[in-house]
Design a protein around this nucleic acid. Structure first.
Length: 211
DNA sequence: TTCCGGTACG
DNA sequence: CGTACCGGAA
């Protein structure tokens, strides 16, 4: 990895926000988040460490359902299976039944499979890197980045359709999708390489509600 | 009623 | 790379 091979030889695709712009947007976004962050059951209070199990569980549920709907299900799961070991030890049928109403039952199966995989590890804990998380059942690129950032403060940025919209808005990127996707992804990625990756990710998520 | 969406799978 | 999954929202 001696040299960086960007698209300097490809005219028209090497655009990106300059560092001053990025710094300005960072400050603005974090300041906004510090004053407007949503209080969510799976979200740790400011300054406190979040529970990776809770973050993982919520992210899996939120893949397919709104915050309002997930709320009660998340509470039920946490009350019944407070940690990954408890969930791993539960009968699959119980998990599927508790999942009833959320849809995408393949994910409930993967949830259970993932819990068993994690609990089966020597450490019995979730991997704290994006790459490690990505290997687990039911965890794709988006969820791996979300958990890495929120639970472990790793420099990762989950990018879904909403984050794309927010990023495009923040950086004034007007290139229409899907053509502007690489440009937007590049901007979002720069965001992640900062000191408060978890807060950035959650700020982006919360900001969606205000756009 | 159509459209939308992370992930796994074909 | 396209499709299925399953409910909610438009």
């Amino acid at each position: 990895m001696a040299k960086r091979n960007d698209q300097a030889s490809c005219p028209g695709t090497d655009r990106g926000p300059d560092s001053a712009t990025i710094r300005r947007i960072r400050r603005r976004l974090l300041a906004w988040y510090d004053g407007n962050r949503r209080r969510l059951p799976w979200r740790a209070p400011p300054g406190r460490k979040s529970d990776p199990y809770a973050v993982w569980l919520s992210e899996i549920m939120l893949q397919q359902t709104t915050v309002a709907t997930v709320g009660p299900y998340f509470g039920n799961f946490m009350a019944r299976w407070p940690n990954v070991k408890a969930l791993a030890g539960a009968p699959l049928d119980d998990v599927l039944h508790a999942w009833q109403g959320l849809g995408y039952y393949a994910r409930a199966r993967n949830l259970h499979k993932c819990a068993k995989a994690v609990a089966g590890h020597p450490a019995g804990k979730f991997p704290d890197t994006e790459a490690g998380l990505l290997e687990l059942p039911g965890i794709g690129p988006y969820t791996a980045a979300a958990i890495a950032a929120i639970a472990f403060d790793q420099p990762a940025m989950p990018v879904d359709g909403n984050i794309e919209r927010v990023t495009a808005r923040l950086f004034g990127i007007t290139t229409p999708l899907p053509k502007g996707k690489p440009e937007i992804a590049a901007a979002a990625r720069i965001f992640a390489a900062t000191e408060r990756p978890g807060d950035f990710a959650q700020a982006m998520m919360d900001l969606v509600e205000r756009i």
